[in-house]
Computed example of a mutant assay.
Amino acid sequence: MTKLPSVSVVILNWNGLNYLQQFLPSVFASTYPNLRIIVGDNASTDSSVEFIRANYPQIEVITNDNNYGFAGGYNKVLDQIDSDYFILLNSDVEVQPQWIQPVIDLMESDAQIATAQPKILSYKEKDKFEHAGAAGGFLDMFGYPFCRGRIFDSVESDNGQYDDVKEIFWASGAALFIKRDKWIEVGGLDADFFAHMEEIDLCWRLKNNGYKVIYCPDSVVYHVGGGTLDSENPFKTYLNFRNNLFLIQKNLSFFHASIIIFIRLWLDLVSLLKFLYDGRPKHARAINKAHTAFLKAIFKTGKKASKISTARFNGTALVNKSIVWQYFVQKKKTFNSL
């Protein structure tokens, strides 16, 4: 009998006691046989660690000495884990008992599959997709991420329209499956992102090496979303706008990136003006702050880009259209209408 690959579910926590109390029971009930469940703690100041040790002694705890964000925190924790597969799972995700096996079976079927995600539905409205990942991530010609099941703020109901296995561009960090050797090959997450879009950068680097990213509809999880930063927090706006520019500079050729970034800066200006028009000046300032931070880091980011070869780039799910034009001008609100 073939031995099942070893799998570690790793939940990164920072002051998330309420979510651990609510969602750890479903993760603990996972039926995959060769499984470790690990909570990596980013120096929480609540009683998260004490709660786990008192109530779930079978769950391992790895503590960081500081809050290193999503990216840096996971890097430090996963450096200490030896499994065939890692599952990066947000603390605000409810899973079903058999959620792991279908994804592992799919990834084992093809050596070129490096990472994957399940179907991600909303915990609050379980007949709808969830914003962060939905039925798999795509990228448009100007570097805007979107999903099957979610374009900007338009989220579709799940009517089985995306129940096919699909090669995608990026897998959501809310529930990201990755082969450990591929994680090591590309150096894990980029800690400079801190949080937001770091999983898109990870997947893009894997695709630059020719690997596949896959969506598995036979596994379903339910995500609350916005557990650490909600959409009304200007810091989230800052991270999204800054990191999207990092993403483009790092993963495209210098010439191509320069053109796209020039266009994006003008499109970002439109977003800034829209925030001002909507009476949200803190978010407008966050965009300006994001551009300043990007420019300050431009040489550091450029050094990372110089290390990336795109000779084997797998461009599947990179959409040669402007999602901004499709959505706001042509009023196409669903993935299948694009």
Rank of each mutant, 00 (worst) to 15 (best):
A317V: 07
L139Q: 10
D65Y: 05
P57S: 09
K119E: 00
W170S: 15
K207S: 05
G73I: 02
L202C: 10
G226F: 09
E232Y: 10
L89S: 00
S122F: 01
N314K: 09
Y85W: 11
N42C: 07
C216I: 05
V221A: 06
T292F: 07
E156I: 02
I261E: 05
F313W: 10
T2K: 15
S154K: 12
E50V: 09
V93I: 15
F142V: 13
G302V: 01
N233T: 07
K3H: 12
H283S: 13
V270I: 14
N244V: 05
L88S: 12
S231E: 13
N244H: 07
V270P: 00
S122V: 09
S154V: 03
L139T: 02
Y85P: 07
D41A: 08
R285S: 03
K296S: 04
L202M: 15
K212S: 12
Y32V: 11
N64A: 11
D84A: 08
S219E: 12
Q22V: 00
D164L: 10
Y56A: 00
L139I: 15
L189M: 10
P57D: 09
N209F: 06
L247G: 01
Y56P: 03
R242K: 15
S44A: 05
V213A: 09
Q101A: 15
E156S: 09
K3G: 11
S47A: 02
V9S: 05
L89R: 01
C203L: 08
K182L: 13
A132G: 04
W325N: 12
I62H: 02
F255D: 07
N159E: 13
A290G: 06
G40C: 06
P25F: 00
L17Y: 07
F254C: 04
W170T: 09
N209M: 10
L318R: 03
S122M: 04
R280S: 00
V77Q: 07
F235H: 12
G160T: 05
L106W: 10
G225N: 10
V221R: 00
C147L: 04
F299D: 15
K321S: 04
F241S: 11
D84N: 14
A71C: 12
M107E: 14
V319C: 04
V319W: 02
N159D: 08
Y238E: 13
N320S: 13
H291G: 06
S253I: 04
R205I: 09
S83A: 14
S109K: 11
W325I: 14
S309L: 09
S8E: 06
H283A: 06
V49G: 04
N90P: 04
P57R: 03
F194Y: 15
F193Q: 01
H223K: 08
S322G: 10
A71Y: 01
L35I: 13
G160Q: 15
L189I: 07
V39P: 01
G143K: 11
K128D: 11
R36Y: 02
S122D: 15
K236N: 12
I178L: 11
M107D: 13
D140P: 09
R264V: 11
G188L: 01
G173N: 07
V9W: 06
E125D: 14
L229K: 03
